[in-house]
Simulated assay, not measured.
Amino acid sequence: PQLSQQVKALLGEGNAAYVSQNIPEAARLMEEAIWIEPRVPAAWATLALCYQDEQPEKALKLKIIRAHLVHDVDLWLSLGSESRGLGYLQQALYCYRKACTLDTSDVNAQWERASLAKELGDFRTAKTALLAILKQYPHDIVALEELRPVLVELSEITKGIELYQAAFDSYQERYPTGIGGFGDIHIIILADFYNSINDPEMAILTIRRGARWLQGRGDQRFWDNELDDREFDLPNMARRGQDPSIMVMTFPLDLNFRHRLAISQLMLGDHEEGKVCSSRSKIFLF
């Protein structure tokens, strides 16, 4: 705003008093300037400094008032951190929200907001912030890992499937030999998501294709035509009706992957294959 000569004079005198360490006089002059013109950020800033040492909580409130006048992302982040340090967690979350509103693409602001929201159990806010990060960095593994428990708390499993499946597809396309950030644990998470919505067929497909991809065999889709999991049988362990003298090519499989296959086969009602999977993983379900 256009400042009157009176307000300018008060600001000048108040700043001089502050520099001279005449804190009470500086505070009085700044309060008078604010009473005349409350939209002057500099007055709020100096007034906050006057209370910083003796009354940090009051100083923080004054700085927050100033922040509403200057619209600065970094300032809101700083105030969020300060509020958090003083134990005002809801106020900190408000500050982070203001920073994110000013710039939705600011990843640091979104991370701070998501972290604190999770800490406070505000899972919808955490979800909003983490999805904003994923919008900037699609399929980011760290963001996906942070988002998974949030979606579980919100019972939004289908959203988790959507995000993890899209990430899995993307990593397979970008890293056909299986070298990338999407690893065993993320394939297991996706399979568990599918099982949790009673879709064991997709869980099995996820485990099979995921294992192949991690082994650099992502192009061996012909294994999908097999109704069982013989692709991952242990060496020298023939199936019922299979000639043990005939060598069949098989591949290793992570123990947790075998566990998921067993669960999924049992969910499908294929108890025979479920027993095979569980025996291979030494998980005695029967």
Rank of each mutant, 00 (worst) to 15 (best):
I133W: 00
Y88K: 12
T125M: 13
L60W: 06
I157V: 07
L151I: 02
L144P: 08
A99K: 00
H139R: 04
D122K: 15
T101L: 11
Q91E: 12
F168I: 09
I161S: 00
T128H: 14
D53T: 15
E156Q: 08
G87I: 02
T104I: 09
R84K: 13
Y88Q: 10
L147A: 01
L116K: 07
D74W: 06
Y164W: 03
A109H: 04
L116W: 05
Y88G: 06
A126N: 13
Q52M: 14
C100W: 05
Y171C: 05
Y94V: 14
Q110I: 08
L93N: 11
L131G: 09
E112L: 14
N108G: 14
L147M: 03
E153N: 07
D169H: 04
Y164N: 01
V70M: 00
R124W: 14
T104K: 15
E57K: 13
A114M: 11
A117W: 03
G121Y: 00
G85Q: 08
A143W: 00
I65F: 06
S155A: 03
Q136S: 10
A117T: 05
L77I: 06
E156G: 02
S78G: 12
G80V: 02
S83C: 15
Q165P: 01
D53H: 14
I133H: 02
V70T: 08
E145L: 02
Q55G: 05
I141H: 10
L134V: 01
